[in-house]
Amino acid sequence: MLQLSGVSVSYADGTRALDDVSLSVPQGQFCVLLGPSGAGKSTLLKAINGLVIPDQGEIHIAGRIHHGSGRFPVATIHQSIDLVLRASVLDNVLHGALSEVSAVAAMFGWFGRQREREACALLERVGLSEAHLYRRAAELSGGQQQRVGVARAFMKQPQVVLADEPVASLDPRTSRDILQLLREAARERNVTVLCSLHDVGLAHEFADRIVAMRAGRIVFDGQPCTLDEMSVQRLYATAA
């Protein structure tokens, strides 16, 4: 379970990006974050991942306080394609296990056969084949690269996956495929997914729960069917 209690984050220029945010996401839930740009969605994900230190509040993952250590079972999928494009597909997936191997092993790229087999299984799960294994990530399409990104995130064997607008740069059909894949993979492994999206339609289609944010605060928290058209218009209309 992911639990946030009274989390606040302020940036150096005084902007209050998160204002007393409390949220509890049960294990295995696919939770979508909605809200206009600057609402605090990315900051919330960064705070959970430990890339931003909260001024106040606590974050618990599986009952333990999260301090942002790399060994915590949290993996991230980003909005831009952030693979190492000159490295092979296999290497990119194995990068998900970097926090599990020693520095010497990482220097020589030794991840062990077992991890390589796990990476192969994940690649097959996200719909890629043996032919893609040693191709450079740069040679893949945007959708295929995001599939590798999903495989890399699950390679860490996380309990929580944070997806920061993972389909922002993809066409509608590929976006659906990636979200479907993310939801299925998370359900199979009982992984909590916190995914920020801009497309309300996709949120309705895939989310178990929608959390809407505005000006660093949660303004809606409920099932997709309870988020009506008026609420959506209010959510985006008042944004600067």
């Binding site: 000159r86 990068h95 926090s99 990482a106």
Partner: peptide, 28 residues
């Protein structure tokens, strides 16, 4: 910066990020 930030977000240390994200990019 993007691949480096991504690996750091996955919990990789600086030296591992240097080896896995920077070296393949600058190798050529």
């Amino acid at each position: 910066r993007a691949p480096q930030d991504a690996l750091r977000a996955l919990g990789a240390s600086k030296i591992k990020v240097l080896r896995s994200a920077v070296l393949p990019l600058v190798g050529a």
